[in-house]
């Protein structure tokens, strides 16, 4: 369900860009961070085979995130306003690299990159949420995208509990980062459920 929600979020995002011929309201910085997240995490495509499903999803997430970046940077460039997308990503990249160096399952390059990608994914939404707060409102379709994207990691939580009891497996790095990631959406979800799903416009209180 988490994976499908993630997949759905990307489909919604592409649908929003295509139908409105615009990437207004979407943070380029957040989208660029996702490209970095997927490239650093899915390096194991080249040596760690899990399943056709797993490989297909990894390829899709890399390809679609690069494609969204292309759409924003070239095809719909005039519709993107960098002056409201001002979050400093350096504040995210530095700490995530440090977290990757401290918390990893083996002190080697690929494992550090994997851990870095987990932490970075947890906070990659911040430039987008920052932008949302600055503008104070959003198109409904953009909020559906964010809701699906936020639900995705939240849906992993019951899966982790299940695997803890069922398979006796726990991945502390993914769990802690996943809880942080989900936590960052709580404010957004509150407004989404109380406004957008009641048929009102997404508007933040002044």
């Amino acid at each position: 369900a988490g994976d499908i929600s993630h997949l759905a979020s990307i489909v919604i995002l592409l649908h929003k860009i295509y139908t409105s011929h615009s990437c207004r309201g979407i943070s380029f910085k957040t989208q660029a961070l996702y490209v970095l997240v997927f490239l650093t995490r899915y390096l194991d495509l080249f040596w760690h085979w899990v399943s056709l499903y797993n490989t297909a999803m990894k390829v899709f997430f890399i390809a679609s995130s690069v494609y969204v970046l292309y759409l924003m940077k070239y095809k719909y460039r005039p519709t993107h306003d960098p002056s409201i997308d001002t979050f400093k990503v350096e504040y995210l990249l530095g700490p995530c690299l440090i977290l990757g160096l401290i918390f990893n399952y083996e002190f080697k390059f690929t494992e550090i990159l994997w851990s870095f990608s987990i932490w970075l994914e947890a906070v990659a939404i911040l430039p987008q949420l920052f932008m949302l707060q600055r503008t104070g409102e959003a198109e409904a379709i953009t909020t559906h995208y964010l809701a699906a994207l936020g639900a995705y990691r939240a849906l992993y939580i019951p899966n982790w509990i299940w695997r803890y009891f069922g398979d006796n497996v726990v991945d502390p790095i993914a769990v802690v980062a996943g809880l942080v990631q989900t936590g960052l959406y709580l404010d957004f979800f509150y407004v989404y459920f109380t406004k957008v799903l009641q048929g009102q416009k997404f508007e933040l209180p002044a």
């Binding site: 994976d3 194991d44 398979d167 006796n168 497996v169 726990v170 991945d171 993914a174």
Partner: peptide
């Protein structure tokens, strides 16, 4: 725990 088992997640 076998961490490869966990890394079958996305």
């Amino acid at each position: 725990a076998d961490k490869n088992l966990v890394k079958d997640e996305l």
